[in-house]
Amino acid sequence: MMVFLAAHKQTIGILLGVLAGVTARLYMLHTDYRQYPTYPHGRIIHISLGVIAAALGAIAVPALFNKDYTAITFLALAAQQFRDVRKMERETLTVIDRLELVPRGATYIEGIAMVFEGRNYLVILTAFLTSLAAIVWEWYAGAAAALLMLLAVRKLRSGKSISHIAAAEAVQVRQDGPDLFVDDIYMMNVGLTANQAIIKERGIGIVLTPFNPNGKATIANLGQRQAILYDLSTLLGVFRDEGEPALVPLAKLDMKDGRLAIFMLPQEKDVNKAREIVERVPILESAVRMPTEAGVNHKEGRASG
């Protein structure tokens, strides 16, 4: 056995690298309430791409050991390949989004597409380091590297959520004639008494109060707001159909203090659940702003968060 391991060091390294890479991809591939990637074919696509990414990363090491330096160009090929994955995801989601009652919005889509590309690079890195450790030292060093990378992947997998930047509170939906307010924030003008009655019966309101200027800038982002509305509609169902523009969920800002009012008509009227959902909405990478990090704001001392 030991003789075999010593004789086939590179093969073992590659195998371990591929295995670690695929494990990392499977670990990162979660089909949750959003049902994306779709099951089963969407998953098959991404698992296959994960296998390719893992193989590329694992094979790079022995190629370099054999002084086959041009092999590194394959990694450039891989990068191109995974940029295409991102493009493919973006295009698919954008097309599908037009047929959603409550769309995800471009920022959410870009976030998802970015995650797909980024995770493939993580797979390459995992496979590369695993196979490197296995070939330079021993197979158990490779296994240790794989474990370390899986821990790193786990840390990178989870992003932050709204509850990190703002406090959500369930509030009253108030109607003053045709004017609709959530708490004291003006939402829209509803002309028909039929719609006013539906809103009175089913409407829920939530107000987000940001903790600091960073949070204020982030929840003001239209893409982030759309993501909140999309998650709410997916989880609670939305009381709406095509041709009912008055019943669309809305998120409006109180421009004076940066609070965000959210109004929607859920199928399942449960305000507390809605509040919890809003708190768990992921913060979209492209929506994050950090005004407190700017030089002009440092004189006043740094705000936390």
Binding site: G177, P178, G191, A194, A246
Partner: peptide, 25 residues
């Protein structure tokens, strides 16, 4: 007026707003 506006909302896929002066737009 309400009835007509209701029908038009469905037909035109447009939302009804009350200008509070007897006009629905």
């Amino acid at each position: 007026q309400e009835k007509t506006a209701f029908l038009l909302e469905k037909i035109l896929d447009a939302s009804v707003h009350d200008l509070k002066n007897g006009i629905l737009v």
